[in-house]
Amino acid sequence: METLAQSNTSLAISRRNAIFGAATAGALLAASGTAAQNKEARPLDGKAAVVTGARNNLGRGFAVALASMGADVLIHHHKPETRDQAEETARLCHEQGVRTAIFAGDLGSAETVLAMYDACHSQFGSIDIVVNNAGRIWKGNFADIPDEEFERCLAINTKAMFYSMRQAAQRLADNGRVINIATSLLCATSPFYAAYAGTKAPIEELTRTLARELGARGITVNAIAPGAIDTPFFHGPESKEAVAYITNSVPAKRLGKIDDIAPVVAFLATPEARWISGQTLWINGSYGTR
């Protein structure tokens, strides 16, 4: 998941980032062809996926899981200084014998999201799966939320999701998949997360609406709402006491792991998940239910 520093990337910068990402991807594309030919048929062979916020944490897990099932993957990250992490994700995907591309940009800009979809289509020829994973978290008292921090959370947690889903509605191949990453805080309300959960909340309604609109084309749209996952994204704003409290709130007395969530995302991308659409799946060890 990515942290936004700004929310108005220009189209010119977006296009430059798309080209920059594609340049590195070219070597990966050329190197992976033989490996893919030597593998047995997999559920997502021939499919192309976009995963936002895929430089590390859950996003990396989603990208690698889709690659392991045969999908080519465009790996989005936000800032130039995280390029090395995005390249590591690309390397792990490449090991699965698929093609990869890297795209850098601020998804709080509609122009950047358009450029990302352009880059995926240019590299792979289609867009079949979109995992909207990029997110920003801020924890603190509601009364103390700075205007600029709320705007940043709004840009990545709400606007970026909307912009990407709008592009998916226009450009996703028939029988495609949209998988939006929400949060279990939407069913287990906690204090101090208003900026995060409040800007994630629209995901559920956007998911339900788009599922209804695209269902006739065989496209499914779902939301995954993870609980607390043992990653730097979760630990960043948390004290040791808060981590202990959340851990003890789960019946299994542990935090979630990336491999608790990634297989569910991968399954939703498969043809077998064709009858699951418009749903929010709460994956949190019963930390919260609805």
Score class of each variant (00 low, 15 high):
126 S>G: 01
251 P>I: 14
137 I>A: 13
78 H>S: 14
185 L>T: 12
250 V>F: 11
268 L>A: 09
146 P>H: 10
136 R>F: 15
225 A>R: 07
104 A>Q: 09
61 G>I: 07
238 E>W: 12
147 D>R: 12
171 R>C: 00
102 I>K: 08
211 A>K: 11
95 E>L: 04
118 D>G: 01
201 A>Q: 06
94 H>C: 11
42 R>T: 03
234 F>I: 05
31 A>H: 03
228 A>V: 09
222 N>F: 07
155 A>S: 15
283 I>L: 15
69 M>T: 08
127 I>S: 11
202 P>K: 07
93 C>P: 00
101 A>L: 03
1 M>T: 12
149 E>D: 12
164 S>L: 01
184 S>N: 10
169 A>L: 07
269 A>F: 02
286 S>N: 09
214 L>S: 03
173 A>C: 13
85 Q>K: 14
264 V>I: 10
277 S>P: 04
241 E>P: 04
7 S>E: 02
90 A>I: 02
252 A>S: 13
154 L>R: 14
142 F>C: 09
160 A>H: 09
145 I>D: 10
39 K>V: 04
175 N>G: 11
269 A>D: 12
35 A>R: 14
136 R>Q: 15
106 D>N: 15
212 R>I: 08
29 L>W: 00
83 R>P: 00
223 A>G: 03
115 A>K: 02
286 S>Y: 02
119 A>N: 01
47 K>E: 01
149 E>T: 09
96 Q>E: 13
161 M>C: 09
57 N>D: 08
135 G>I: 05
97 G>W: 03
78 H>T: 09
273 A>C: 06
235 H>L: 10
189 T>V: 06
